[in-house]
Simulated assay, not measured.
Amino acid sequence: MKPIEQNKFSSTISGIKLFLDDIELILSKFSALNENYILFDDDNIYENLEELKHYKGNNPKIIKIELKNEVGSFNFLYVRIVEDLGSVSSYGEKQNKIAYEIEKIFLKRKNSPLIRYFFNPKNAVYNIITITTISCLIYCYKTYYLKEIVNIKQNLWPIVLWFVILFFTLLNKNSNGKIELKRRHESSFLKNNKDSILLVIITAIFTAIITSIITALLS
């Protein structure tokens, strides 16, 4: 018996975090094989990364790269990058070799599941809202139904903890799964993080509003 040689390759890696440096490295892999590739998304085809950045900003939702082959050739190389996930597929000996190298880039930029759970801004916001809502219901039940005295300060630490995690993850670009068309160590802290700081403030205000509404309804 002899196994059939597979001349195709496909891989999908989740939990990745890619910066401009990584996208440029992937494009250089395409260029090493063939300069005739296309860079596009669901809406447009772009001349280069600068044009993509101009129209879709520093955090595009999706980036696709596909190798253009000569007429009559069935070989292909295709990369698709979305938030927190990268996939590469290929057919052909040379194309497969480049695909393996791109997969290594994805694996190198992959975060562990534990880090993705605890240091994730979406998860932090969800936990803040959930814990706040549950805490308010328990407080109102014990205070107005059981007539017990509840020490609020003792129950605030989980909310404070998740606010700290939220603030850290929003200010640290490595902690979110967004595509970053910026280099890893760009400067200007306030300029780069003003949206993140604003989101933390909005979340804090929203949490306070939820607490007030639930307390008012059950009082």
Rank of each mutant, 00 (worst) to 15 (best):
I98P: 02
K64E: 08
V125Q: 01
T133N: 02
L67T: 00
K94F: 03
E47Q: 13
Y139R: 05
E51Y: 04
S89W: 01
N111P: 05
K97L: 11
Y144S: 08
S89Q: 12
Y46F: 15
N44L: 08
N59W: 00
K122Y: 10
N123A: 04
Y117E: 06
F118W: 09
L49D: 02
Y78G: 02
C140A: 14
E93W: 00
R109Q: 15
I45F: 10
S112A: 12
K61N: 07
I105P: 00
N127Q: 05
I105Q: 00
Y55S: 10
L85Q: 12
F76T: 05
K110F: 08
K110H: 09
S73E: 14
D84A: 12
K142Q: 14
S112G: 10
L114R: 06
K68M: 11
K97C: 03
Y126K: 11
K104T: 12
C136A: 15
L137D: 11
K61P: 02
Y46V: 01
R116M: 10
K153A: 13
I149M: 10
Q95D: 05
F119T: 07
V88M: 10
K68C: 12
Y139C: 05
L49F: 03
F119Y: 15
N111D: 11
Q95A: 03
E83H: 09
L52V: 06
V82F: 04
G92H: 02
V88R: 04
Y46W: 05
F119R: 06
K53Q: 11
K53R: 15
F74Y: 14
N58G: 06
K147M: 12
E148N: 14
E70W: 06
I115R: 14
I45H: 10
K153W: 12
I129Y: 05
S87L: 08
Y145Q: 12
T143C: 00
I45A: 05
I115D: 07
K97I: 08
E66N: 08
K142L: 15
V150A: 09
K56F: 01
G57E: 07
G57V: 10
Y100Q: 09
Y78V: 03
Y117S: 05
I45K: 12
A99W: 03
Y46G: 02
K68W: 04
L52W: 02
S73A: 13
P113I: 06
N127I: 02
D84I: 01
I152C: 02
K142T: 08
I138M: 10
K108Y: 13
K64C: 07
L77D: 01
I45T: 14
H54K: 15
I98H: 00
I138T: 06
L146A: 13
V71S: 12
F74H: 13
D84W: 03
I45L: 07
I134C: 08
K53L: 09
F106C: 05
P113E: 05
K142Y: 13
N69R: 14
I131S: 04
I102Y: 03
Y100S: 05
I65T: 00
G92V: 01
F74G: 10
F119V: 08
I134P: 01
N111K: 15
Q95G: 01
E148D: 15
